Deep mutational scan, measured.
Amino acid sequence: DVEEQIRRLEEVLKKNQPVTWNGTTYTDPNEIKKVIEELRKSM
């Protein structure tokens, strides 16, 4: 579920933690925001 994935990513973003997405680890909050944007567009 895309909305659930977005929620999880936003939680990680709030905690300022790195997130691994599709085999890539993002540590930059701006990169994580881009991933969230892409997910929103795909909905």
Rank of each mutant, 00 (worst) to 15 (best):
residue 27 T to S: 10
residue 4 E to M: 11
residue 27 T to N: 09
residue 12 V to I: 13
residue 24 T to Q: 14
residue 41 K to Y: 10
residue 43 M to I: 13
residue 12 V to K: 15
residue 33 K to A: 12
residue 18 P to D: 06
residue 32 I to D: 00
residue 6 I to D: 01
residue 34 K to D: 05
residue 20 T to R: 11
residue 13 L to I: 11
residue 11 E to Q: 08
residue 27 T to K: 06
residue 26 Y to G: 00
residue 32 I to E: 00
residue 10 E to G: 03
residue 12 V to L: 15
residue 23 G to C: 06
residue 31 E to F: 05
residue 31 E to V: 06
residue 30 N to M: 13
residue 36 I to C: 01
residue 40 R to Q: 06
residue 12 V to E: 14
residue 17 Q to T: 09
residue 12 V to Q: 15
residue 10 E to I: 09
residue 23 G to H: 02
residue 1 D to G: 12
residue 26 Y to P: 00
residue 35 V to M: 10
residue 16 N to F: 14
residue 41 K to I: 10
residue 25 T to G: 02
residue 33 K to W: 12
residue 16 N to I: 03
residue 20 T to S: 13
residue 7 R to P: 01
residue 43 M to W: 06
residue 42 S to W: 13
residue 2 V to T: 10
residue 27 T to G: 04
residue 6 I to R: 01
residue 40 R to C: 03
residue 13 L to K: 02
residue 20 T to A: 07
residue 36 I to D: 00
residue 4 E to T: 08
residue 15 K to C: 09
residue 39 L to C: 02
residue 6 I to G: 00
residue 3 E to V: 11
residue 28 D to W: 02
residue 26 Y to A: 00
residue 2 V to G: 04
residue 42 S to Y: 14
residue 2 V to E: 04
residue 5 Q to M: 14
residue 4 E to K: 08
residue 33 K to Q: 12
residue 37 E to C: 07
residue 32 I to T: 02
residue 8 R to V: 14
residue 18 P to Y: 06
residue 7 R to G: 04
residue 19 V to K: 01
residue 31 E to P: 02
residue 9 L to F: 09
residue 18 P to K: 10
residue 1 D to N: 13
residue 7 R to I: 06
residue 11 E to A: 09
residue 14 K to V: 10
residue 34 K to N: 08
residue 14 K to R: 14
residue 1 D to C: 12
residue 39 L to P: 00
residue 28 D to E: 08
residue 14 K to T: 11
residue 30 N to P: 03
residue 29 P to L: 06
residue 24 T to V: 15
residue 14 K to S: 14
residue 28 D to K: 04
residue 30 N to Q: 13
residue 21 W to F: 13
residue 2 V to L: 13
residue 28 D to C: 04
residue 4 E to Q: 10
residue 14 K to H: 12
residue 3 E to N: 07
residue 22 N to L: 11
residue 32 I to F: 07
residue 40 R to K: 11
residue 33 K to H: 06
residue 17 Q to F: 15
residue 37 E to I: 08
residue 10 E to L: 12
residue 9 L to Q: 00
residue 26 Y to Q: 01
residue 28 D to G: 04
residue 6 I to V: 05
residue 8 R to T: 12
residue 20 T to Q: 14
residue 18 P to F: 05
residue 3 E to S: 09
residue 17 Q to P: 05
residue 38 E to G: 09
residue 6 I to N: 01
residue 15 K to Y: 14
residue 30 N to V: 13
residue 36 I to A: 01
residue 24 T to D: 06
residue 34 K to T: 07
residue 38 E to F: 14
residue 5 Q to S: 10
residue 32 I to Y: 01
residue 30 N to I: 13
residue 22 N to G: 12
residue 3 E to M: 14
residue 24 T to F: 11
residue 43 M to K: 05
residue 32 I to Q: 00
residue 2 V to H: 06
residue 38 E to Y: 15
residue 14 K to P: 03
residue 24 T to A: 08
residue 18 P to S: 12
residue 38 E to S: 11
residue 38 E to D: 11
residue 8 R to H: 13
residue 7 R to T: 06
residue 20 T to G: 03
residue 32 I to W: 03
residue 22 N to F: 12
residue 8 R to E: 11
residue 39 L to Q: 01
residue 6 I to T: 01
residue 15 K to T: 15
residue 10 E to D: 04
residue 16 N to R: 09
residue 18 P to R: 04
residue 22 N to Y: 10
residue 25 T to N: 03
residue 27 T to M: 06
residue 32 I to P: 00
residue 41 K to C: 05
residue 31 E to L: 08
residue 3 E to W: 15
residue 18 P to G: 10
residue 37 E to A: 13
residue 36 I to W: 03
residue 16 N to Q: 09
residue 29 P to N: 04
residue 31 E to M: 10
residue 43 M to V: 10
residue 42 S to R: 10
residue 42 S to V: 12
residue 15 K to S: 15
residue 27 T to Y: 11
residue 22 N to E: 14
residue 8 R to I: 15
residue 20 T to I: 15
residue 4 E to W: 11
residue 2 V to C: 07
residue 33 K to L: 13
residue 31 E to Y: 04
residue 29 P to V: 08
residue 16 N to E: 07
residue 25 T to H: 05
residue 3 E to Y: 14
residue 24 T to S: 06
residue 37 E to W: 06
residue 29 P to W: 05
residue 33 K to Y: 12
residue 42 S to Q: 14
residue 5 Q to I: 15
residue 15 K to M: 14
residue 21 W to V: 12
residue 39 L to Y: 03
residue 33 K to G: 06
residue 35 V to A: 04
residue 13 L to N: 02
residue 26 Y to C: 01
residue 4 E to C: 07
residue 22 N to M: 12
residue 15 K to H: 13
residue 5 Q to F: 14
residue 42 S to C: 11
residue 4 E to I: 07
residue 35 V to F: 08
residue 9 L to N: 00
residue 19 V to R: 00
residue 11 E to P: 01
residue 17 Q to I: 14
residue 27 T to V: 07
residue 37 E to M: 11
residue 32 I to R: 00
residue 36 I to N: 00
residue 37 E to D: 13
residue 23 G to Q: 02
residue 37 E to T: 07
residue 41 K to A: 14
residue 2 V to Y: 08
residue 23 G to I: 00
residue 33 K to C: 07
residue 34 K to S: 08
residue 21 W to K: 02
residue 24 T to I: 15
residue 2 V to M: 11
residue 2 V to N: 04
residue 24 T to L: 11
residue 11 E to R: 06
residue 29 P to A: 10
residue 15 K to D: 08
residue 34 K to L: 11
residue 2 V to S: 04
residue 16 N to M: 09
residue 21 W to L: 12
residue 40 R to M: 08
residue 26 Y to L: 14
residue 36 I to L: 10
residue 4 E to R: 08
residue 36 I to R: 00
residue 10 E to V: 07
residue 35 V to L: 15
residue 13 L to S: 04
residue 23 G to Y: 02
residue 24 T to P: 00
residue 26 Y to E: 01
residue 13 L to C: 05
residue 2 V to R: 05
residue 6 I to Q: 01
residue 24 T to K: 14
residue 3 E to H: 10
residue 19 V to E: 03
residue 15 K to W: 13
residue 5 Q to E: 09
residue 5 Q to K: 05
residue 31 E to I: 06
residue 12 V to A: 15
residue 11 E to C: 12
residue 25 T to K: 04
residue 12 V to D: 12
residue 11 E to Y: 05
residue 31 E to W: 03
residue 31 E to N: 03
residue 26 Y to H: 02
residue 23 G to P: 02
residue 36 I to G: 00
residue 40 R to H: 04
residue 31 E to R: 02
residue 5 Q to D: 11
residue 26 Y to V: 04
residue 32 I to S: 01
residue 15 K to I: 08
residue 25 T to M: 08
residue 5 Q to C: 10
residue 31 E to G: 03
residue 23 G to R: 00
residue 21 W to Y: 10
residue 33 K to D: 03
residue 20 T to W: 15
residue 6 I to A: 02
residue 39 L to S: 00
residue 41 K to V: 09
